[in-house]
Simulated scan of single mutants.
Amino acid sequence: MPETSRRGLLFGTAAVSAGAFLTACTSNEPSKKEPAADSRPAADDKPGKHVTIGFAGPQADHGWLNAINEQARSRAETYSDVTLDATEGSNDTAAQIGQVETLINKKVDVLVILPADGKALTQVGLKAMRAGIPVINLDRVFADPQAYRCWVGGDNYGMGLNAGKYIGEKLKDKPNAKVVELSGPDSLELTQQRTKGFDDALKNYPNIRKVARQAADFTVESGQAKMAQLLQAQSSFDALWNHDDDQGVGALRAVQQAGREGFLMVGGAGAKSAMDAIKADNSVLKATVLYPPTMAASAIDLARALGQSKGISGMSELEIPASVTLFSAVVDKQNVDQYLPTGFN
């Protein structure tokens, strides 16, 4: 899968979603807390200065990417003092650069950009910043930190790490346990980070050995084909770490067609279909590690706060952070009801 056609690089452990920390930061409701003793601008006050946010998101050719666009639009609609000027979304680098330049020429107040290719769009990010339009860089990071005011995104290493920890704890008492991995495309840095996190976690469990790995393409079809190969090559194993819930749909089909069982599967991203399967508890899929698309809603929260010169409720600083890395929570049968509302189609 080309890097320009799929998602790029997925806060507190109890957060239901990425927006949990930031939802209050720009709420239209008055703060229930006593006013601060200083003159720091409140981040959770009533509607304030109107802010036009330009949003350049991805083409919705994947469940997670579609959820990114929906999260941005729906969050903007909750604010009476926000206008969202959204592009059609593109995974073509040149087309997206043109879209961002159009938003710059419109003189929007803040830009939220999930670049098709972070390196390729760095120059247009720099152009916006130099024009006095602050940029919220969403997920796929620009090559130059001067190209954005704040980065918001997921933790791919942490995603693999938490998947490995979950599997490790489930298999820690099983001698000579074997695991397999169904990754994303090896050409993507995010895939490499997820695999490294997983491998590092397994180092803490000397009884567990990874015996096979296949790289899929974040699609149902590739998930099914590559999982079939894993099943054919490995007559038995105890756990599967699958990087993506979309390709996981195909992986489950392959498992069912082969009539295989006796192992646990951990998915990735947090699709509703995966959470429904986890809740039903009628397949090998027992957990998924989140890479929350709610990061787009949080980016809108931050853009509004930035446009209104506010900080974040619950933090003492006058300004929004320079970066926000989301936590990759593990969702299993014990907590799936809590996370189901965040699942994406």
Score class of each variant (00 low, 15 high):
residue 242 N to Q: 15
residue 166 Y to P: 05
residue 286 K to T: 08
residue 318 L to G: 08
residue 237 F to Q: 01
residue 58 P to V: 05
residue 192 Q to A: 13
residue 226 K to T: 11
residue 24 A to G: 15
residue 321 P to W: 10
residue 209 R to M: 07
residue 156 N to P: 02
residue 132 G to C: 11
residue 238 D to A: 02
residue 107 K to I: 05
residue 259 G to H: 11
residue 10 L to K: 07
residue 328 S to K: 08
residue 331 V to P: 09
residue 253 R to T: 07
residue 58 P to L: 14
residue 197 G to I: 05
residue 4 T to A: 14
residue 33 K to M: 14
residue 124 V to Q: 05
residue 96 Q to W: 09
residue 133 I to V: 09
residue 244 D to K: 08
residue 182 L to F: 01
residue 28 N to L: 01
residue 88 E to W: 03
residue 328 S to Y: 12
residue 60 A to G: 06
residue 53 I to V: 14
residue 81 D to F: 05
residue 109 D to F: 14
residue 335 N to R: 08
residue 73 R to N: 06
residue 33 K to H: 13
residue 90 S to P: 08
residue 65 L to Q: 15
residue 135 V to R: 07
residue 310 K to H: 12
residue 251 A to N: 01
residue 305 A to S: 07
residue 112 V to A: 12
residue 330 V to N: 08
residue 38 D to S: 11
residue 309 S to M: 13
residue 324 V to W: 14
residue 272 K to T: 03
residue 280 A to C: 04
residue 172 K to M: 08
residue 57 G to E: 08
residue 287 A to V: 02
residue 280 A to F: 02
residue 31 S to P: 14
residue 194 R to W: 10
residue 300 I to G: 04
residue 193 Q to T: 04
residue 265 M to A: 03
residue 103 L to H: 02
residue 132 G to Y: 11
residue 90 S to M: 12
residue 306 L to Y: 01
residue 87 T to Q: 14
residue 322 A to M: 00
residue 137 N to G: 02
residue 139 D to A: 04
residue 11 F to P: 01
residue 221 E to N: 04
residue 156 N to D: 15
residue 112 V to G: 03
residue 124 V to P: 09
residue 344 F to H: 06
residue 295 M to Q: 12
residue 327 F to A: 03
residue 270 G to A: 00
residue 61 D to S: 13
residue 83 T to C: 00
residue 265 M to W: 01
residue 34 E to D: 14
residue 181 E to Q: 08
residue 307 G to K: 11
residue 67 A to H: 09
residue 190 L to C: 09
residue 247 Q to H: 11
residue 344 F to D: 00
residue 198 F to I: 10
residue 253 R to F: 04
residue 24 A to C: 12
residue 243 H to L: 10
residue 251 A to F: 02
residue 321 P to M: 03
residue 36 A to S: 15
residue 168 G to E: 13
residue 312 I to L: 15
residue 38 D to P: 02
residue 96 Q to T: 02
residue 242 N to M: 13
residue 267 G to I: 09
residue 295 M to C: 04
residue 132 G to S: 10
residue 290 L to Y: 14
residue 336 V to W: 13
residue 108 V to K: 04
residue 177 A to D: 12
residue 268 G to M: 08
residue 92 D to H: 05
residue 232 Q to W: 00
residue 208 I to D: 07
residue 164 G to F: 14
residue 209 R to I: 04
residue 290 L to A: 01
residue 311 G to F: 06
residue 60 A to L: 05
residue 165 K to P: 00
residue 337 D to L: 01
residue 200 D to H: 06
residue 116 A to T: 07
residue 24 A to Q: 13
residue 193 Q to V: 01
residue 86 A to C: 08
residue 259 G to V: 03
residue 113 I to T: 11
residue 219 T to P: 07
residue 337 D to R: 06
residue 293 P to Y: 06
residue 153 G to V: 03
residue 195 T to P: 00
residue 204 N to E: 09
residue 103 L to M: 04
residue 28 N to G: 14
residue 168 G to I: 02
residue 291 Y to W: 12
residue 112 V to S: 08
residue 17 S to A: 05
residue 171 L to E: 11
residue 69 N to Q: 08
residue 98 G to L: 03
residue 189 E to V: 15
residue 182 L to R: 01
residue 168 G to W: 14
residue 183 S to H: 05
residue 179 V to H: 11
residue 58 P to M: 12
